[in-house]
Simulated assay, not measured.
Amino acid sequence: MSSARGELAALAMDRLVGRTVLPDDLVTAAARAIVAGLDSPTLPELAGLGHDDTTASDLFSQVVAELGIEVPTDAATARWQLLGEALAALARGDVSVNEGATAVWELDRRLDYPDALDEMRRWIAMLDAWIPTDVTPVSFCEDQILQRARELLSGNWPPVTR
């Protein structure tokens, strides 16, 4: 049941931060939640919609409220939260450096390029542009990204920005 609830929470966060969440994603997640044993008054209605039904978004908001799924109150807070999660996954080695860097890059853009991420941004750009004939080994770029992730996580969160 917790994975279905987690999927609904992740979709709620994605919508809040401005990522594209299609009605199909919401309907499918609702159907999985029912199968997993979650229940709310609106959940069956959402699960029964067509996969391109535009009312899915409103019903999904009701489901989130009915299930008491907590999401941050504003998009900026949600973006910083997701950035912290992405940096933590990167630092723990739960994702590859490329995958983690892609997530950080996307959230950095959505946060309007805060000063606190300047150095991380430079290393990610260097990794993205790296070619086998570069003098700097790719492992050095990756190590710098991991080090910056750990440094960011060890300070105040979210970091003081502009």
Rank of each mutant, 00 (worst) to 15 (best):
A29F: 04
R19V: 08
A91Y: 03
Q81I: 12
T136L: 08
G6E: 07
A125I: 04
L8E: 03
E70K: 10
R5F: 07
D14S: 14
V104F: 10
T136R: 09
P132Q: 01
D52H: 12
L90I: 05
T42H: 02
T28H: 06
A65D: 08
T161S: 13
N156Y: 11
M120I: 11
A47G: 06
N98E: 15
D25W: 06
A129T: 12
I69V: 06
L49V: 02
M120C: 11
E151S: 08
A9I: 05
H51S: 10
S40H: 00
P159W: 02
L107D: 13
N98P: 08
D134H: 10
I145N: 02
L90M: 07
T136D: 05
D24T: 14
A88V: 04
D112A: 15
F140A: 12
E99K: 15
P114F: 07
L22H: 15
D39R: 14
P132F: 06
R122C: 09
M126D: 13
I124L: 04
E85H: 10
F140N: 08
Q81D: 14
L146F: 07
A91G: 00
G48W: 02
W123R: 08
L43G: 01
V64S: 00
R122G: 09
V21L: 02
V71G: 00
M120Y: 11
R121G: 06
V71H: 04
W80Q: 09
R5P: 03
P132D: 00
T73A: 14
L38A: 04
L153D: 00
E106S: 15
A12L: 00
E151L: 11
L152G: 03
G48R: 05
G93K: 02
T28Q: 08
T73W: 08
V135L: 11
I145P: 07
G37I: 07
V97L: 03
V95T: 15
T133W: 10
R19D: 15
E142I: 05
T54P: 13
L59N: 07
L11F: 03
L38N: 01
L83A: 10
D143K: 12
L22Q: 15
R109T: 15
A101E: 05
R148P: 06
A89T: 10
A149V: 02
A103F: 09
A36D: 00
